[in-house]
Design a protein around this nucleic acid. Structure first.
Length: 697
DNA sequence: GCGATCAGAT
DNA sequence: CACATCTGATCGC
């Protein structure tokens, strides 16, 4: 949970993600994403009153965030005070101090944060230097290096401070399985279950928050089964989400909620109330996306772990892991870092201790800032750090997790990042050090220590005793069985596990479903071996090829990262016709109005392909990043003489004018009286400076 | 009756 | 297994 107070040292007139207390006096507000813990005070009467008095106060956010925010009537009063900024479009904004009559210009750039739909990081460039506020983010290793606007030419911009999401800046989250692998694991479990019969359904036990959408859309897209949710009006202008969710309960994948939803589950009822279909009781499994639960495992586990007769945990995170934070910060290499989350049990100093070595100030500071470990004292030598070599040792000691565990087979030797590593190594020794460290550490894995913690296990508790010995559909459970295994037993677990697999295979009584030869999936979905090479023994035939094979197959198909959510314009909304392939039916498009939405019919053979073809605007993260490698700022400059490019390169914003996220006239933003209207030649000059990474004054 | 805050839930 | 919420109790306005 964010504990960021709202203001940055460098630009105290701005408030980000906090709207109470001191922030009531801010000259401009920023919202990185639509999670409540980043919206404190946003609907308070005190702020509302201030808005009414100061017409120049605006809230800056991404178009998707605005859309999500305004879906709730509680925030409607913000409607014409929100200025949406397109992602990756540097925009100049003018801050006016009404009392002092001062004006301050700065350029802000939204960068995709990969946390939830609409989530962004804010890059501010102004007279007090360049600072980056990450909001909540999850970026894979190397993604910062691929963000064109974080870089000038081939090197990272000179960033003074980073306000960083440190949610998982704890060694126990050293490695969190990548989004693609987690998705893939979940996909295969869901597939293997729902293909058993129409009565086999999966309940995705997701928290009530944005961030699971890419899970829903990927499952739906791969399996052709929409996901049942309580509400979808917030997605009415996000077709690539909208088409994969439904409020129609007759579907095999559910992510609906009910205040007492695990009671529902225990009673073989879905939160939406479904218990059966055509008189046949449903066969429900629950799948709970979790990060912390996996962080507590001391031994490596699979991406999916069975925790009860019909309960599973799936590794899933929308925050960066420790090593992803390392990679990110090491690349940015700022002078200062300010954690915006202090994990429970940690202190700010502890977190800063971890992060400082990745900052410039660490090697420049005369005084030894923090001395975490005894070993560190010994090794800490500024010069060594700077020159690389021995610095690696230092990093290793400081950063190496106490408990190594790599839940997955994925130990590719410095994957795509090797390229980046080569590109960057000449530039800053530290990035090199951090990168090398990362790859090295990957070899350690396997920690043996087991902290014999008790397993609670909510809904599974009642079942766990049956699970082991005879539960037919069960097999798996990977390494944690509610403390039923003693330490001595642990070494034999693998054996037991394998045996159990064999025994279980084809002897599923609970389901009354003979191992079907016609379904690609096995009778029991439970068999989700952990990473120690079990996947091949899985009786899920479709998995005979290893998971990694699957992953590589899907590499660039939208599996490799969270897809950016794209809003459609009102024009597009009217025009879009999306055919479906459900045997002659044409689901008229619509990007349905609300009434339509609540009643979309499920089409068994529904396929999303046509939709994709119609929606070129839904651009995959990774693909786009790739494209952008070619698309350097220098190129943009060339175009900058064209007026249209001004909005791409440097948008000078009119805070007074409503920039409607849904209007397609992106290129016609009126200028505000406050904002200086740059003459073409001045603009050109600004672009040039921007491209060179200079601060704009 | 509303908001802020806390405890407890999932 | 504290990721982000929601509910309900209590207190103050």
């Amino acid at each position: 949970m964010s504990s960021f107070a709202g203001r940055m040292r460098e630009y105290p007139a701005l408030s980000i993600d906090r709207f109470d207390r001191e922030n009531l006096r801010a000259r401009a507000y920023f919202l990185s994403h639509c999670h409540k813990d980043h919206m404190k005070g946003l609907r308070a009467p005190s702020l509302k009153r201030r808005l009414e008095c100061s017409l120049k106060i605006h809230l800056y956010c991404s178009p998707v965030t605005k859309e999500l925010l305004l879906t709730s009537p509680k925030y409607k009063f913000w409607e014409n005070r929100i200025v949406t900024l397109e992602v990756e479009t540097p925009t100049q904004i003018s801050l006016v101090d009404e009392t002092a009559g001062e004006k301050e210009d700065l350029v802000v750039t939204l960068l995709p944060a990969g946390h939830c739909p609409g989530s962004v990081m804010f890059l501010f460039q102004g007279q007090n230097g360049t600072v980056l506020y990450t909001g909540d983010f999850r970026l894979a290793k190397g993604e910062a290096a691929r963000m064109e606007l974080l870089n000038s030419g081939s090197r990272v911009k000179d960033i003074q401070s980073v306000y960083l999401d440190t949610t998982f800046c704890d060694p126990k989250y050293y490695h969190i399985t990548s989004r693609e692998e987690c998705l893939n694991g979940i996909l295969e479990l869901v597939r293997s279950w729902i293909t058993l019969s129409p009565y086999h359904v999966v309940w995705l036990n997701c928290k009530a928050a944005y961030g699971y959408e890419y899970l829903f859309t990927n499952l739906s897209e791969e399996l052709g089964v929409k996901v049942h949710v309580n509400k979808l009006d917030m997605f009415k202008n996000m077709p690539e989400i909208l088409y994969h969710v439904t409020t129609e309960r007759h579907t095999q994948i559910h992510a609906c909620r009910h205040p007492r939803d695990d009671e529902c589950f225990r009673g073989n009822r879905l939160p939406c109330g479904m218990t059966s279909q055509n008189g046949t009781p449903l066969r429900i499994i629950s799948l709970k996306p979790s990060t912390m639960w996996f962080g507590e495992r001391t031994r490596k586990t699979n991406v999916i772990v069975r925790t009860g007769a019909s309960s599973y945990r799936a590794c899933f995170s929308f925050h960066s892991s420790y090593s992803e934070i390392e990679d990110f910060l090491g690349y940015i290499h700022p002078v200062n870092v300010y954690p915006s989350v202090i994990p429970v049990g940690a202190t700010e100093d502890k977190v800063v201790e971890i992060l400082k070595p990745l900052c410039r100030s660490y090697s420049v500071n005369s005084e030894p800032p923090y001395l975490p470990l005894g070993m560190l004292k010994k090794a800490r030598t500024k010069d060594l750090i700077h020159t690389g070599g021995v610095g690696d040792v230092l990093f290793d000691m400081v950063l190496a997790p106490k408990r190594h565990k790599i839940p997955n087979q994925q130990l590719e030797p410095i994957p795509a990042s090797s390229k980046i590593y080569e590109e960057k190594q000449s530039e800053t020794g530290s990035y090199k050090a951090a990168t090398m460290l990362t790859s090295l550490k990957v070899d350690f894995l396997e920690c043996e220590e087991s902290n014999g913690e008790e397993e609670e296990d909510d809904d599974e508790e009642s079942e766990k005793n049956q699970v082991l010995p005879h539960d037919q559909d069960s097999t798996p459970i990977l390494d944690n069985l509610n403390g039923e295994l003693t330490d001595q037993e642990i070494p034999r677990w693998d054996v037991f596990f394998k045996r159990e697999i064999v025994a279980t295979d084809g002897s599923d009584k609970e389901d009354n479903c003979p191992p079907s030869s016609d379904s690609p999936g096995s009778q029991s979905p439970n068999l989700f071996s952990d990473s120690e090479g079990f996947s091949d023994s899985t009786h899920i035939s479709s998995q005979n090829s290893s998971q990694s094979t699957h992953i590589s197959e899907r590499g660039s198909q939208g599996w490799d990262s969270q897809v950016d959510t794209v809003l459609i314009s009102s024009q597009e909304r009217n025009v879009l016709d999306i055919p479906s392939s459900n045997g002659g039916y044409t689901e008229t498009a619509v990007i349905p109005s609300l009434s339509n939405m609540e009643n979309q019919s499920d089409s068994p053979s529904w396929k999303p392909l046509e939709y994709n073809a119609q929606c070129p605007s839904s651009v995959n993260f990774a693909l786009r990043s790739k494209d952008q490698e070619m698309n350097t700022e220098a190129v943009t400059i060339t175009h900058s003489v064209l007026s249209e490019v001004s909005s791409k390169t440097l948008r000078t914003l009119n805070p007074e004018a409503r920039t409607d996220s849904q209007s397609s006239s992106d290129f016609e933003i009126p200028l505000s009286p406050d904002a200086e209207v740059p003459k073409p030649d001045k603009l050109h000059c600004l672009y040039k400076k921007l491209a060179e990474g200079e601060t704009i004054h």
